[in-house]
Simulated scan of single mutants.
Amino acid sequence: MIHFVILISRQGKVRLTKWYSPYAQKERLKVIRELSGVILTRGPKLCNVVEWRGYKVVYRRYASLYFCMCIDADDNELEVLEIIHHFVEILDRYFGSVCELDLIFNFHKAFYILDEILIAGELQESSKKTVARLIAAQDSLVETAKEQASSISNMIAQATK
């Protein structure tokens, strides 16, 4: 099971977190600070798995971001590396070569994509095409809602003139 997902920039800024196990807010901040210190200081040629508090933290660096997932000690690290890569490929497909700014300004989309891939810390959808189709459907619903809200506000504006 994946206990949490954290995306950290090279400067140590947290760009996205998703918690699948209960952690108090104070504990979350402590976990982020502790893991940032461990992962950011590791050399690029070292293994992408860190043993931490009886768990394993699997991470991978893409451009300026570290994608980190905490798993149980007996879970498969290679599978989690593939899940991270799968998530990055879908982000790339959606944003067209995803960068840190895409995640900062469209964090809600990144959360939605992550929620389509993982549910309750388990892999839900492994098909990139299915995830892309679901994201397109969600975007379509959002656009329809925006158009309806715009037309309603226009009608209200005309009625109050």
Rank of each mutant, 00 (worst) to 15 (best):
Y23S: 01
K161Q: 10
E89A: 07
I39Q: 01
V58E: 03
E89K: 15
G54Q: 09
T41Q: 08
V31T: 11
T130H: 12
W19C: 08
E122F: 06
Y23E: 07
G37T: 07
A73K: 14
L7M: 10
D74L: 09
I71V: 14
Y94T: 09
V98S: 06
V57I: 10
Q158G: 06
S126H: 07
R42L: 03
D115I: 01
A145S: 13
V131N: 09
W19Q: 08
I2T: 14
I6P: 05
T144D: 14
A149P: 03
I2A: 12
G121D: 08
R10H: 11
A157I: 04
D115T: 03
L114P: 04
E77L: 00
G96V: 13
I84M: 02
K56C: 09
K26S: 07
R133D: 13
H85V: 13
E116W: 10
M155Y: 12
K45Y: 15
V88F: 05
T160L: 01
F111N: 07
S150Y: 12
A157L: 08
D139C: 08
R61M: 05
E34W: 10
K146G: 03
K146A: 12
E89V: 07
S21L: 07
A132P: 02
K146R: 15
L29W: 00
L35R: 04
D75L: 04
M155E: 12
Q148N: 13
L46S: 11
K128G: 10
I117F: 06
Q158T: 09
Y112D: 04
M1A: 13
I135W: 09
I104N: 07
E143S: 14
K161A: 12
E143A: 14
